[in-house]
């Protein structure tokens, strides 16, 4: 594995008597797609929320680029360069593509009108949005002032991914990006994910879709009972073994735990 960008050690999170994370470790290497798989209730989303700032772990340590971080909110994680594409996308349907991309981090005009009249620099925002959409090949979105609700499911996913990539300087987390899509649009989103990786941005991909996971992932983090029980190389194991390990039907292969 390449040097880790984002790592976590010994994460614990309890909700009353329920232990959602139980001494959980995590590593994401530079420029890789790491798939996180696990059965329902295994605690995947708690882990992801801890990494993206939505959950504050009771114990353990998270490091970004080797530096210890302790996010108190998703906004702090975003500021540190970790962007999350939520399963519901967190797009505002009535707002335009540009407005959505810059929501919460709008660009104001230079000089007096920006500082005192608080005027938005729409031209600049359009330019940046268009540049990012074009770079990721979302060329068919012609009018970036059109409302997001007029887009197809795949296009919306595309906008959410582009937004994350445009601002995520270190890590992009994607929660079930293909779950709501048809076969063809799902394929296109997988292409998009690869393109993001090829630009050098590491991706954490949470997915239930094993064919998709095996198609794009460089490594697979298997989550079970609140912790990582194995890290698999998708070229070494086949899909049914991965599912068997995930569900506890077979023992995971011996792991060489990378030193932190």
């Amino acid at each position: 594995m390449s040097p880790p960008v984002l790592q976590a050690q010994g994460l614990v999170k309890r909700y009353g008597h329920v232990v959602a994370m139980d001494d959980c470790d995590f590593e994401l290497g530079a420029g890789e797609i790491l798939a996180v798989i696990g059965d329902n209730g295994a605690g995947k989303s708690t882990l992801i929320k801890a990494l993206s700032g939505a959950v504050i772990p009771d114990a353990g340590e998270i490091r970004l680029d080797g530096r210890t971080v302790a996010f108190q909110s998703p906004i702090e994680a975003r500021r540190a360069g970790i962007e999350t594409v939520y399963q519901n996308l967190a797009l505002l349907p009535a707002l335009s593509i540009v407005d959505n991309m810059f929501l919460g981090r709008e660009i104001r005009s230079p000089g007096f009108i920006g500082k005192w009249l608080r005027r938005l620099d729409r031209e600049e925002m359009r330019k940046v949005a268009r540049k990012n959409l074009t770079e990721l090949g979302l060329l068919t979105i012609q009018d970036i002032d059109q409302a997001v609700e007029t887009l197809s499911g795949g296009q919306r996913q595309g906008v959410a991914v582009v937004r994350a990539v445009a601002f995520g300087s270190k890590v992009v987390i994607m929660d079930e990006p293909t779950a709501a899509l048809g076969v063809r649009e799902g394929r296109r989103v997988l292409d998009l994910i690869r393109q993001v990786r090829d630009r050098g941005l590491p991706i954490v991909l949470i997915s239930h879709n094993m064919p998709h996971v095996f198609e794009v992932a460089d490594r697979i983090h298997v989550h079970r009972l609140g912790k990582r029980i194995a890290t698999l190389d998708p070229t070494d194991v086949d899909m049914s073994d991965a599912v068997a390990i995930m569900t506890g039907a077979i023992e995971p292969p011996p792991q060489d735990k990378p030193a932190l």
Binding site: Y86, N88, L89, A90, L92, L103, G104, R105, R118
Partner: peptide, 20 residues
């Protein structure tokens, strides 16, 4: 920005929260 956020909060409050 304040004006666009008025629309955003009214459109989908949870999504607006997640968007920061």
């Amino acid at each position: 920005a304040w004006g666009r956020r008025v629309y955003a909060v009214g459109d989908d409050k949870e999504a607006a929260d997640l968007a920061g």
